[in-house]
Design a protein around this nucleic acid. Structure first.
Length: 464
DNA sequence: TTTAGGG
DNA sequence: CCCTAAA
């Protein structure tokens, strides 16, 4: 016997649900005003259906709900194919705390075989307490409203052995902020029990992100190739997991994925953790980070701690770097692409200093000596940044000549004087290819160099 | 592994 | 930032 519960806080398509057999549930809303009208109608509908189709069906607490209380208890004991409870949260709710309790009502569920498939956006957090067999849904966002979906599976151990449960997502969730007025909460109960076949055809509605497909292809090709470069270890973290990890770690969302043998070893997936108060989050955090990445990070950090010149840096610069490092560490294991950490002025200065000291192209040297304290910023990053600085300084120069009014992006982040310094260094240490194209001022020799050098030397004192 | 350069 | 070729 297998039950699946879908909580859908999105705008809904109407999902067909399978029948419910001997299933009890309780929904508890602690901090929610429930729109009595819509809830009433829904419950009435449900009540009628229950009565019509199963005389044993009971519906507890309907009075409470309709009178505005925050409690909804129910026992669904029917075989309907479309059991849907609609709960419409009131308009001005800043907080939503839902609790679907299987433990106290279910009959003979095996709580060890519980899978949860959760996906929430818009400020919800979903946690599944395995001991209590409780599915906790909480939201603490005020304005963003609620949207999202949750799917939970309870599988009877006895059944799951010979009948693998089909994974299924019934709803897609949008991250768009919606008005609370328009939110609905739908609880869909259905039984997958001997009906696995009927479910097979239903596919998840949300198509995997592009990176996912890209990477799965990539993994295939990569597994065929011989090398496992350091990057390959990064790639081993599966993207879906990466995202989960990212969200969970960053937002302290509750872990909601449990392995279920009935799922053929696969995880039920896609929790979208959302910003919630820590007190709401569950206790257990599943770490998705592959060991290798952890190790790499440790090595990396160790590496950088080789007592370097960064003691010369000002304190706030160090904290800046540490901060960025933390962010980076939090993100590193999660997605293959670093989340753009913008360069601080101090970093730019360090880069410039390094270039002036070691010359352009000695990126590893510069990284080792100037960026020892920040484990992000690889030598490649330095190179890229230098290239960008060069470009910026160039455009800045052109802008200044043209007296263009619309100077925009470049000189705002990086002070003009810094760019001048960059130009100076570019003149001294010609950057391959870059200098060729901009033959105007960066020729390292003769007259053009003099003029550029003069230009910058004026502003240099302001920089250093 | 590091650099250069394209995307 | 990422990716890759070349050194």
């Amino acid at each position: 016997m297998s039950f699946r519960i879908v909580l859908d806080f999105n705008t809904f398509h109407s999902h067909k649900c399978l029948g419910i057999e001997h299933f009890s549930f309780a929904v508890d809303f602690d901090h929610i005003k429930i729109d009595s009208e819509s809830l009433h109608s829904s419950l009435t509908l449900e009540g009628e259906r229950t009565k019509q189709e199963d005389h044993d069906g009971k519906l507890h607490g309907a009075d409470d709900v309709c009178s505005g209380s925050n409690k909804l208890l129910g026992t669904a004991n029917s075989r309907t194919t479309d059991d849907i409870f609609n709960l419409a949260p009131g308009s001005s709710n800043a907080s939503f705390l839902g609790n679907v309790d299987f433990g106290s009502y279910s009959q003979g569920f095996c709580t060890t075989d519980i899978g949860v498939d959760l996906s929430f956006t818009g400020g919800h957090n979903v946690a599944f307490d395995q001991k209590e067999s409780k599915l906790m849904i909480s939201s603490s966002t005020g304005s963003s409203g609620c949207s999202g979906s949750a799917t939970a599976c309870l599988d009877d151990e006895n059944m799951s052995d010979n009948r693998p449960v089909k994974r299924k997502r019934l709803s897609s969730c949008s991250s768009s902020k919606t008005n609370s007025e328009h939110n609905e909460s739908r609880i869909v109960l259905f039984n997958e029990g001997n009906r696995g076949d009927t479910l097979v055809t239903e596919k998840r509605l949300r198509k995997p992100p592009r990176r996912y497909s890209e990477e799965s292809v990539e993994q295939k090709s990569r597994s065929n190739s011989k090398k496992s470069a350091p990057r390959a270890s990064k790639d081993k973290s599966r993207p879906s997991e990466s995202h989960k990890h990212q969200w969970q770690k960053k937002l302290k969302a509750a872990p909601v994925v449990y392995k279920d043998k009935s799922f053929n070893g696969g995880c039920i997936q896609v929790p979208f953790g959302l910003p919630i108060e820590e007190s709401h989050s569950a206790k257990k955090i599943i770490c998705w980070e592959p060991e290798e990445i952890k190790e790499n990070r440790i090595l990396c950090i160790k590496d950088k701690n080789d007592v370097e010149s960064f003691s010369a840096e000002s304190e706030d610069e160090n904290t800046e770097d540490e901060c960025a490092t933390k962010v980076y560490n939090a993100q590193k294991g999660n997605s293959r692409r670093k989340h753009h950490i913008s360069w601080t002025l101090s970093e730019v200065m360090k880069l410039i200093e390094g270039v002036s000291e070691y010359g352009v192209g000695r990126w590893t040297e510069i990284k080792r000596l100037q960026f020892s304290s920040s484990s992000h910023r690889t030598s490649v990053d330095l190179k890229d940044k230098w290239r960008n600085l060069l470009k910026a300084s160039d455009t800045q120069l052109q802008n200044r000549r043209k007296v263009v009014v619309g100077r925009k992006q470049t000189s705002q982040q990086v002070p003009e004087s810094v760019l001048c310094r960059v130009r100076e260094l570019a003149a001294i240490y010609p950057y391959p290819r870059e200098n060729k194209s901009k033959n105007l001022c960066s020729a390292p020799s003769s007259s053009s160099f003099k003029s550029t050098a003069n230009n910058m030397l004026i502003s240099l004192p302001t920089v250093m």
